[in-house]
Simulated assay, not measured.
Amino acid sequence: MDTVWAVPARLDRSLGDDVIGYEVEAPDGSVGTVVRLSSVPGFGHLVIDAGTWKFGRSVVVPAGMVAAVDDAERVIKVGCTKDQIKEAPRFERDQDTGDLFYLRNLGTYYESLTAAP
């Protein structure tokens, strides 16, 4: 993976506004629905409304965690589990996704998941 913030090159696509409303699935089940995308250059990420799964909270997943996009089914598959997403630095629903301190902490967390053991 080049960076946790970039869509993996093997997907051969970018994530544009066309994915808003797509369901997000982890290997162990549904995470929620994409409600926003990053507007911060160099920090590509999805803001996901996790609904009741996260007590009405939104969660943020960096674009580099995207494993597949199925446009026909309107589903984005991520390469991390629901528990790993739950353990990520907390994102408040009204928080500015341009908060660089938050994004750096989030990036460090997700990079630790992709590091070789």
Rank of each mutant, 00 (worst) to 15 (best):
M1K: 03
M1N: 05
D2P: 10
D2K: 12
T3A: 15
V4A: 04
W5Q: 02
W5L: 04
W5E: 04
P8A: 13
P8V: 14
P8I: 14
A9K: 10
R10A: 15
L11P: 00
L11D: 06
D12L: 05
R13A: 13
S14A: 11
L15E: 06
G16W: 00
D17Y: 00
D17F: 00
I20Q: 01
G21L: 05
E23A: 15
V24M: 09
E25Y: 01
P27K: 13
S30P: 05
V31I: 15
V31K: 11
G32C: 08
T33I: 14
V34R: 08
R36I: 00
L37Q: 09
S38E: 01
V40Y: 08
V40C: 05
V40W: 06
G42P: 12
G44E: 08
G44Q: 10
D49Y: 09
D49L: 01
G51K: 04
T52V: 15
T52E: 13
T52A: 14
W53V: 01
F55G: 08
G56P: 04
G56N: 07
S58A: 13
S58L: 03
V60C: 05
V61R: 03
V61C: 09
P62G: 09
P62N: 06
A63N: 09
A63I: 02
A63H: 04
A63C: 13
G64T: 06
G64E: 01
G64M: 02
G64N: 01
M65A: 12
A67S: 10
A67C: 00
V69L: 01
V69K: 04
V69Q: 07
D70L: 02
A72T: 13
E73V: 00
V75K: 08
V75L: 11
V75H: 05
K77A: 15
V78E: 01
C80F: 02
T81I: 03
K82T: 12
D83K: 14
Q84W: 03
Q84D: 13
Q84R: 08
I85K: 11
R90K: 13
F91Y: 15
D94V: 07
D94R: 12
D94H: 12
D94Q: 09
D94G: 07
Q95G: 05
D96K: 05
T97N: 08
T97H: 11
D99H: 10
D99F: 06
L100A: 11
Y102W: 15
L103E: 06
R104A: 13
N105V: 10
L106W: 14
G107D: 03
T108A: 10
T114S: 12
A116V: 12
A116S: 10
P117F: 11
P117G: 14
